[in-house]
């Protein structure tokens, strides 16, 4: 019996509260993300804040999911957990069939490096490094040799049409170009999921559309994409929209039903 199977056996006996999303989904390589009743509490000066109150979420390979919700709904917390930047107070999280919710810091760092490609609202590029060096960064921590790093970083930049800008520093690039560098960096280690946190938050609408087209292209090419946003028209680019409210999933629907419900509300 493998470690994962042992974890599974234990988890089935554990008492758990199924709220919504994918009840009964068993973690397997088909499912990139499976969470079971994950909660996250913060101790804010003696007062416990329940940011997540038991989230059940399952995401299949090659899905394109938007996570929405008003501020305070827990979407940032969920993103941090999905991105393995944080671990849940309780509950389980399987990423690519591996239980990651109980991992130590350094194991999480390894998982982030191999399985997660981050795209941030503020791009988070290293200001003094060139586009190429920024894209190389995950490969540096993956222990890839210098020559191979350059090769793969160039490829990744070519995928986002920035091959001609690879020696430019972030301050020599436009907002849209910066975000495309960030996307190239996120993809360079061929992660299981591309995790975008308000990827268009700092961009004008034209540039936002440009980035959304990049995401759609990646999704079409088989990349699993998870995007956290509070803008419904950005969320509408995803094929599935999960809405969080008060630390729980309040709705989980396809784009079409989401768009339809948007129109009803409007």
């Amino acid at each position: 019996m493998s470690l994962i199977e042992q974890d599974l056996a234990m988890s089935t006996t554990a008492e758990r509260k199924v709220v919504t999303s994918a009840p009964g989904v068993e973690p397997s390589p088909d499912w990139v993300i499976v969470t079971r009743g994950i909660t996250r509490n913060y101790d804010m000066g003696g007062e416990v804040v329940h940011a997540l109150r038991g989230v059940e979420l399952a995401v299949r390979r090659n899905e394109y999911v938007a996570i929405m919700g008003p501020s305070g709904s827990g979407k940032s917390t969920l993103m941090n957990l999905i991105g393995c930047l944080d671990t849940p107070s309780a509950g389980e999280y399987w990423l690519n069939g591996v239980l990651v919710s109980r991992m130590e810091d350094d194991e999480l760092a390894r998982v982030r490096n191999r399985e997660i490609g981050f795209v941030f609202q503020t791009f988070n590029l290293l200001p003094r490094a060139s586009a190429l060096q920024n894209v190389e960064l995950p490969l540096v921590y993956a222990g890839v040799s210098s020559a191979e790093r350059k090769e793969r970083a160039k490829e990744a930049l070519a995928r986002v049409q920035l091959a001609d800008r690879m020696d430019h520093r972030p301050n020599e690039l436009s907002g849209g170009q910066r975000q495309r560098v960030a996307i190239a960096r996120a993809l360079v280690n061929r992660p299981a999921i591309l995790l975008a946190d308000e990827p268009t938050g700092n961009l004008d609408s034209t540039t936002s559309e440009e980035i959304m087209r990049v995401f759609e292209g990646l999704s079409a090419a088989g990349q699993t994409v998870i995007m956290v946003t509070h803008e419904p028209d950005i969320a509408a680019h995803a094929r599935r929209v999960v809405v969080l409210r008060d630390g729980r999933i309040s709705s989980d629907e396809t784009r079409d039903t989401f768009v339809a419900s948007l129109n009803t509300r409007a």
Binding site: G83, L85, D105, D106, A109, R110, R112, N113, R114, F118, N124, L125, L126, L137, P138, Y141, A142, R185, N189
Partner: peptide, 14 residues
């Protein structure tokens, strides 16, 4: 910068 590096997979020892 440290945050970025950690997000991208830098371990403590890195």
């Amino acid at each position: 910068e440290i945050g970025i590096r950690k997000a991208l997979g830098a371990k403590r020892r890195d």
